[in-house]
Nucleic acid binder design. Sequence first.
DNA 1: AATTAATATATGCTAAAACATATATACGAT
DNA 2: ATCGTATATATGTTTTAGCATATATTAATT
Lengths: 94, 94
Amino acid sequence: MNDLIQSLKNARKKKGLTQLQLAQSVGLPQGHISSIESGKTDARLSTLVEMARVLEHELMLIPRQLIIPIKALINGEELAAFEQRWRPDEENES
Amino acid sequence: MNDLIQSLKNARKKKGLTQLQLAQSVGLPQGHISSIESGKTDARLSTLVEMARVLEHELMLIPRQLIIPIKALINGEELAAFEQRWRPDEENES
DNA sequence: AATTAATATATGCTAAAACATATATACGAT
DNA sequence: ATCGTATATATGTTTTAGCATATATTAATT
């Protein structure tokens, strides 16, 4: 499956949203989210951008040389490896 | 216009490719590349992924908090190709 | 096992991307 | 101005995403 789609799926789950909730937020039927996430549908850019926006992410074009370090940066994020002052004021941990 | 589309356009120019050359590489008519780049067409994921691949880039889903530093990383890439490590305790940036 | 919640599939319809091809416009060069 | 090259537009056809809706299947939970 496409890497980006898997990332969207992971982001949704991390946010604790169901397909139905995400679908309602972006204005799609739940079945479409399922179809997109399972790779049956080749979604349009605007759809993916909207999904990403709701999930507080953004689509970016990354040069090949930077993919590895950026992935490390992203994966280390929830481990607080990237210690910075932008600490979201949330209570619960998952 | 969409940020990702602009990035694709920039990446193509940076590689010194014409729309026709890119079109031939990805197997689309040149007119489609034009249409996509000018925002007239809402391309599908597979199309964008193919374009990115030819341009030696990749589409990634980036958490909102990391967009700024990653953009800095990408923009500084040709000037600081080896500066890929962050100083967690660093206070300001020069 | 039964119920609920979440995800996957299905159908008919509409709008638009993708396709093929062609032409037009813009932009440089000489 | 002319010639080559790059980009933008145009038209008609095919394919498919997206829409609406419904149902089926698959986890969880009790």
